[in-house]
Design a protein around this nucleic acid. Sequence first.
DNA 1: CACGATTTGTCCGTATGTATC
DNA 2: GGATACATACGGACAAATCGT
Lengths: 123, 123
Amino acid sequence: MIDPNADRALFRQLADQIRERISAGEFEPGQMLPSEAALGQEYGLARTAVRAALSLLRAEGLVESVRGLGSVVRDRPEPKPVRLHKGDEATVTLGEGLPRVVVVRASGDTETYPADGVILRPA
Amino acid sequence: MIDPNADRALFRQLADQIRERISAGEFEPGQMLPSEAALGQEYGLARTAVRAALSLLRAEGLVESVRGLGSVVRDRPEPKPVRLHKGDEATVTLGEGLPRVVVVRASGDTETYPADGVILRPA
DNA sequence: CACGATTTGTCCGTATGTATC
DNA sequence: GGATACATACGGACAAATCGT
């Protein structure tokens, strides 16, 4: 479970646990995670630690938190292929929320995608 | 400065302030930011709020923090063009620290770059 | 090499605000 | 209105890394 004496931070261990429970199928996409209070109770951690763990998982795009509702396992569709034609450019923008891939077409049109939802290929 | 009555969270306002001071050239790349304690003192905020603000800026790739040292303004080089040839693929990996762009060449070789340091173009 | 000062990292407890049901 | 749940913010505390003395 969680070892206070391990050299890995508690909130990282908790993130590991939740990550495993998700990949094990215990928590499925679209499904609610236990509340922060419940997770804290279950693992014997303060809510600050629980929130830090969830913050990590959010940065990984694994979960989303909605105020007044809870945290849900994010549905991660198979990365969608995006073709780059001559004159196209793709960059990654950081900042608010999940990073996004911005594709500027040769025509000047722009498209954006969740950064973990695309696989870029030359045309 | 910082308005406790604004709709915007205090730590977000602080992040805005620091962002402006960086883009204004008051803090230059490679230079140390004031310590968390100093920032808290200056803006009348608890360290939790200061750390939340710095966490935002780190996610944006604007600053880096080193334990025992402090936080430095990150040097953001001009995004470097990376050419995708036939059979190449590029994806973005989230997770620990800054997101990275992973390029898998047709040969099977892989290259990774800081996500905000590349501009992808078809060959 | 040892020691202390500084700074960030981690953790806890508590309180209040706000959105959802 | 009430219950639940996340967001924000404060305070304090100790650990760990770094640097200069």
